[in-house]
Simulated assay, not measured.
Amino acid sequence: MKKIFGIAILTTLMACSQAEKKSTETKDSTKTDAASVKNEVSIKDEKKLAIFTNYVDLKNALVKSDAASAQKTAAVLKNSLAAYEGCEPTAEIAQKIASSNNLVVQRKDFTVLSADIIALLKNAEIEKGTIYVQHCPMANKGDGGDWLSTEKEIKNPYYGNEMLECGRVAEEIKAK
């Protein structure tokens, strides 16, 4: 009787274990499908769209921990910001990033740059897509840092490959 009871429990546990694996596989494939959908963002104001596009290029360079690419994209972003009235101080921050080849310094300045650009784009008239405001609580020695992304999936510009997925979506700026 004890053997039959033991076999019944073992069979039940194995069946539950298999069910958990199947549900995990389903979740993973769903996640991949959702991540592969391209979120194209369109902003009515062409100057704000240029700023956002150049900003995303800079963010992606920092995600890849590519200091040289970050310098180049920050220089382009600086020009976009300088062309937008009221963004001259933010253009100076982009110039600081463009002037440095040190990732630590670039990422520190990226925090201030991001705060300014987030404030600018919260009032933008988005025609299509979603802009994700993302947050890493560990950035800047625990002070945290925000950034913008066209993807819901977290790709952390403050740590690159060290902690690529550290962070969360804090807000979504959507088309109206």
Rank of each mutant, 00 (worst) to 15 (best):
C87E: 15
K2P: 04
R107E: 04
Q106D: 11
E171P: 03
A19P: 03
K2V: 10
E127H: 07
S80D: 02
P137Q: 10
Q95E: 14
P157Y: 01
E162I: 08
A94S: 13
I173W: 12
L77V: 08
G142T: 04
T90R: 07
K176L: 09
D57Q: 06
K122V: 03
I7L: 14
K22Q: 13
E25D: 13
K31V: 12
K3V: 08
V76K: 08
N140P: 05
N161D: 15
R168D: 11
T73V: 06
I51Y: 05
A70M: 01
I4P: 00
K31Y: 13
L77Y: 02
I126P: 00
Q95A: 15
I7S: 07
D66W: 03
D66P: 02
K31P: 01
S114M: 04
Y84P: 06
A98S: 15
K21F: 13
E162T: 12
L49F: 12
A124Y: 11
I51S: 05
I131E: 12
K96Q: 14
A74Q: 10
E88T: 14
K155M: 06
Q71N: 04
G145C: 02
S114Y: 02
Q71H: 02
N60D: 15
P157F: 00
K3W: 07
T130N: 12
K3F: 11
S65L: 06
S100E: 10
G144F: 13
K108C: 00
S99Y: 08
A68I: 06
S36C: 07
I126A: 09
K48G: 03
I117A: 10
F110Q: 05
T130D: 11
I154Q: 03
G145E: 01
T32Y: 04
K96S: 14
V76H: 00
E172W: 09
K108Y: 07
E127K: 14
A115W: 00
E20P: 00
T11D: 05
Y159H: 02
R168N: 13
Y159S: 01
G144P: 10
Y55C: 09
C136P: 06
E88L: 08
N140T: 09
T150Q: 11
E153Q: 14
A61H: 05
S23D: 09
Y84I: 06
T30H: 11
G6K: 11
D28G: 01
F5H: 04
E162D: 14
K47E: 01
I9W: 04
K72S: 13
T30Y: 12
S69E: 07
N79S: 15
A75H: 03
F5D: 10
V56N: 06
A8K: 01
I126C: 03
N156W: 04
K31A: 10
K141G: 08
G129K: 10
